[in-house]
Structure formats: structure tokens, C-alpha cells
Amino acid sequence: MSYQITIEKTKNPKQKPDEHNLGFGIHFTDHMFTMDYTEGKGWHDPKIIPYSPLSLDPSCMVFHYGQAIFEGLKAYKSVNGDILLFRPRKNMERVNISNERLCIPPIDVDFAVEAIKTIVRVDQDWIPKSEGTSLYIRPFIISTDPYLGVRPSNTYKFLIILSPVGAYYKEGINPVKIYVENKYVRTVKGGIGYAKTPGNYAASLKAQMEAKEKGYTQVLWLDGIERKYVEEVGTMNVFFKINGEVITPSLEGTILAGITRDSTIELLKSMGVKVTERRISIEEIYEAHEKGTLEEAFGTGTAAVISPIGELNWNGKIIQINDGKIGEISSKVYDTITGIQSGKIEDPFGWIVKV
């Protein structure tokens, strides 16, 4: 379908934050994208307007039944001034995977990518240039019917907001400490674990808070049935290098098919590294550590890109991985992906899209 995006520029531009002290998800740009869906009419009225609060009825269905999805990607400013996006189409294709599971009407992927490009162009002065910074892009869809019965909504709102960001974890590229969760369950097969929907993250908060109280950055989830097989870290997919082989949990409907995960697998294979997607138990990881064959562990995700794991705590048994230091593979993947994202390294994969 063909859409025309109308643009209304703000009359009151905000003061931009210090890009050396951005944090993550704290500051927001001058504009936002909105588009509505009405049953029988489809998606309509795409526009970019000044960033402002939403006016929603208290009975709006998203508040009561959680019918919503979101995505996350980034824009970068290259050394020669180009504005670069990293695999935006993959994110928008994943929107429709989430939409299908949550009974939300699909979006036009090509148009959604164009909408991202348009709002990034409008707020391009907000893209930070300092090392390790970027413009985080948050597309999301919420159900908007004012109705308290349980059913899919007939109306929706698609929005995109932007936030200049620094490192997601305060540790940056330094290894993080991860707590292996045994008590709580986030999702099971047949559930919504593979969709990027707020309910998955709400289900993770209790375990995450308890882990932080114990001094850990994040939680490593085990499968919801046997509490045996590794799934993912709260905000990242996870990889383990054992005896020269990189292993990551296979996609079986309970974890997110991460864009950075997919990029990491493709990149490692291009480097000649053996990569295997399969079920891997926490016992196998601890046994590999005991044998001295657990060489590295790291998480992957849009927010942190690569986050090395330096310590695991499972049932009170603490192990250090690679002496708590970043490993060779983690470092190579991080340097290569961030180099491609920033335009410093040639992109042989066709991942970069210029705005």
C-alpha cells in the first residue's frame, strides 16, 4: 500500500543532553511517529508530530489485557556523516511475527522501514557521535479499544519514538555477573516467549530484582518445564564457547529470535568458527567449566550488542568464566558488529541501510 507521511515540526525544540552521559532510555527526541488502525479501514493516517503524551481512555484495552508488541533497533552516525541503520527490515519482519501471536493486524514491512527512515531524518541532529553511543529506535503497537471484554481490539496505534543512548549495562563491554534462575518461569512452549511483547518482560521483573539484590546484573532463564535447559538472559540471547565450538540455544518457541543473535551466528560462521544451535543444559555448562573446556560465554542483543559473561551463579555454585575477562570471540564479534554499524568496517553481509 502507498502511504503519505505528514510531518508537523515542533515549535519548542528540547535541549539536547550531554552525549558523554546519556545512560539508556532516559532522553527522548523532539518528534514521534504515529499511525492508527481501524477495523474495516486498515492502517491509516501516518504522521510525525512533536513528542507528547498520549491521550487514552482509562478503559483502553492495552491497560487491561496487555495486547501490545514492541521492537528495538538503532541508528548510527558514520565518520563521514552518513546515517546508518542495522538490519531494520529484520526488525519489522519480527514485528509481524509478534503481531500474529498477539492477534494484532500486520503492518506493511517496507512502509514501516520507510517510517523509521523518515523520523530518523527529522531528528537526525539527536544522533550522538561519541564512541559507543547511538540513537535507539523504539517502534511499538498498542491496542486502543475502550472496552473491558476479553477479545482482540478493533483499533490500534503504531508509534515510533527515539532516544539517544550510551551503554546499556554500566559495565559496558566488561564481563557481567549472571544469576541462573531456578524459582521463577518466564515462558513455556506454546506461550508467547518468542514474541516481543511487554508481558514477557513483566514476567521477568521479579527474578531480575531478586538477582540484583544478590549483586547480579541479569538473570539466565532455564526452560519452564524441566528447569534444566538454558534459554536466554533477560534482555539477551546467550552463547557459550566450549572446546572451540560456539553453542547457542535453538529457537523452539520460548526465546526471542534476536537480530544480533542471527548476525553473530552468520559472522562467526564466516570466520570459520563452528556454531551449533541446540539445547544445552546448565549441567553441561558447569561440567565444561570443571573440565576446563568452557572458554567463553556472552550475551547478544540490540541494546548491549555483545555483553561478555564473567560469572554464573547456579544454586549457590559460582563459577568464573575466562578468569572474568572478555574472551577473544566476544571481542571479535563486538568489534566487528559495532564497526559495521558505525561504518568503520566494510559490510560484506548487506546489513547496513543508509537513511
Rank of each mutant, 00 (worst) to 15 (best):
S153E: 06
M236P: 07
S153F: 14
Y194G: 10
E232L: 10
A195F: 06
H27I: 04
I104R: 07
L268H: 05
P249K: 08
E8M: 09
K332A: 14
P175D: 03
V273C: 11
I318R: 13
K269A: 05
D30E: 04
K16H: 09
E100S: 10
Y179Q: 02
L102M: 15
L73T: 14
G72S: 03
E210P: 11
S263W: 01
K212M: 09
R186D: 05
A68H: 03
W126I: 06
I285G: 07
Y216S: 04
T34M: 06
Y3L: 12
D125W: 01
K354F: 04
M35E: 06
L148C: 07
L56D: 02
D125I: 03
T293H: 13
S307D: 07
V185I: 15
N313K: 02
I225V: 13
T336Q: 13
I285V: 15
K228H: 12
K206G: 07
F140H: 08
I306C: 06
T293D: 15
I83F: 06
P175Q: 03
E311W: 08
V176I: 15
G42V: 01
G316K: 06
E181A: 04
V150P: 12
M61L: 08
G193I: 03
Y37Q: 03
P175L: 03
P139K: 08
A211D: 03
T260F: 03
N174A: 11
F239R: 00
Y194P: 00
P58K: 07
V188D: 02
K317A: 01
V273W: 10
A207L: 09
G215K: 08
P13K: 13
E226L: 08
I321K: 04
L312K: 09
V180W: 03
F298Y: 15
N322S: 11
N80A: 08
F86E: 01
E311M: 14
Y76A: 00
L56W: 08
E226P: 02
T144M: 10
M209H: 13
A203N: 15
G350W: 05
A203F: 11
W314E: 06
I5M: 05
W43Q: 00
L102D: 05
F240Y: 12
I178S: 02
T144V: 06
A115H: 11
T10K: 02
K212F: 04
I137Q: 01
K206N: 10
A303K: 11
E290I: 05
A68F: 08
V333Y: 11
K90E: 07
K157F: 00
F240N: 00
E93N: 06
N154T: 10
I345K: 14
I329F: 09
L256G: 02
P249N: 09
G299M: 12
E226N: 13
G343H: 05
M61H: 05
S331V: 01
G343N: 04
V219M: 00
S52V: 01
H44E: 04
Y184K: 00
G324F: 14
F70A: 01
R227H: 15
V180T: 07
G244T: 01
G234Y: 13
P152D: 09
E19D: 12
G343I: 00
R94P: 10
K183T: 14
H27M: 02
Q218A: 09
F111M: 10
